[in-house]
Design a protein around this nucleic acid. Structure first.
Lengths: 223, 223
DNA sequence: ACTCTGTCAAGAGCACTGCTCTCTTTTGTG
DNA sequence: CACAAAAGAGAGCAGTGCTCTTGACAGAGT
């Protein structure tokens, strides 16, 4: 069994990777809409039907690219986090790191934070990678003295916040959890608006505005 | 000229409308990805090539649907605004009205606030309709005594804010303008996260969270 | 009343797509 | 070496966006 995973399986793994790489390359050129299995196969010098030995469908290829993209942006966020130092600086670094990846890979970003593509069957495989950026932000707050924030939180939201407190291990009140969710929403809302061209008439180079937002949201959550 | 726009032009206008209506119906079923001109034609009992007398391309049809969608969500926002009464209540009403339309027309929402579809040529025709929701929010703040907010605003952002102040006619400082932009981002970020399934693991019925966000952002901009 | 011109629907056809099937070749193992 | 599993090759199906040509018809000018 250990010896059996030699040439054959390695070749398979490599070709699988090559297919994904080529697909990503085409994604950057023509977008998810125009991604064609036949074109990928053509570029790789193989016949189109051969691709189906590796990916059962175009949607499955896209799903794999989605999972990879979630992991990539999550890794970018984690890598941007210095890990120690002032929590506020860590927070800002994660925001910039996340946006940096998104701007470098706009089509992959659109794949995961744009409209759901197929008959949107986002399977369970995506939920863990999808949470990595949020978890990086949470991690900054876990062992940090937060400015105490009080505020009325309606019962339903309070319940949801308390569930999150348990699963994520945050030591913070419901209002802070709610604000953290808002900050998370703000982060990706700003990136999406920037990449999808919604800021053109108002804050066209959005860099300054994004940096400002990062700071204001840091304060907003009590940092 | 006035008499010449009788039967012929009227028939044309009606058919154009019917095509768009049918396209919208299919959009709700199969999404933008699956929208097919041939299917629209088939459903309307005409041959596919006839559609091209009315829309030069599939992308142009989608662009028209995009403009319609921007106008529809803008109208929903304006209609939700009671027009008088407490500014804070107006603000909350607009938020709810906007989300309400989005939840009622998820695929049309995805069309305008999801990933840019073709070789994303969002023409100039979309920018005015696209601003209607934001303008409805601005309108609430124009003749309102805002809580004064100060804060450091970096020069570049300050310039952008001052430009907006002039074009929109807001009487508020740069920090307030920046916060208004953040609130605008938050509004659509929250709707997108909700519709695109990003909230599933955390705030699954997002109603309470959305209402809470609306209130907090009202305070955030000084309302 | 009668052409004449521009508009329209219809149909065939091109190049492309995702996907499935069958057949052949290659590869690793008993 | 022989055999079975895995991979590639190619044809083919149904569907797509879009273009071109053909024939019918309505509206206007003489």
């Amino acid at each position: 069994m250990t010896t059996s995973r030699t040439a054959r399986e390695r070749a398979r793994a490599e070709l699988t990777q090559e297919i994904k790489d080529e697909a990503r390359r085409q994604l950057a050129e023509v977008g998810a809409h125009g991604l064609s299995l036949r074109a990928v196969a053509r570029e790789l010098g193989m016949v189109s039907s051969a691709i189906y030995r590796y990916f059962p469908s175009r949607d499955r290829l896209l799903t794999d690219l989605i999972i990879d993209a979630y992991n990539a942006i999550g890794a970018a966020a984690e890598q941007a986090d210095p890990g120690d130092g002032a929590p506020r600086e860590r927070w800002l670094a994660i925001w910039q790191g996340t946006r940096g990846w998104a701007r470098a890979h706009p089509h992959e970003y659109a794949l995961i934070y744009g409209s759901p593509i197929p008959g949107y069957a986002a399977p369970q495989d995506t939920v863990v990678p999808a949470a990595r950026v949020a978890l990086a932000l949470v991690k900054v707050l876990t062992h940090t003295e937060l400015r105490d924030i009080d505020g009325e939180v309606p019962p339903e939201l309070r319940t949801q916040a308390e569930t999150l407190t348990k699963t994520l291990g945050i030591i913070a009140g419901p209002e802070t959890v709610a604000r953290l969710l808002m900050a998370w929403t703000q982060l990706f809302g700003a990136i999406s608006f920037d990449l999808f061209g919604q800021y053109v008439g108002s804050v066209d180079p959005a860099d300054a505005f994004f940096a400002h937002s990062a700071k204001r949201m840091a304060e907003f959550v009590g940092l």
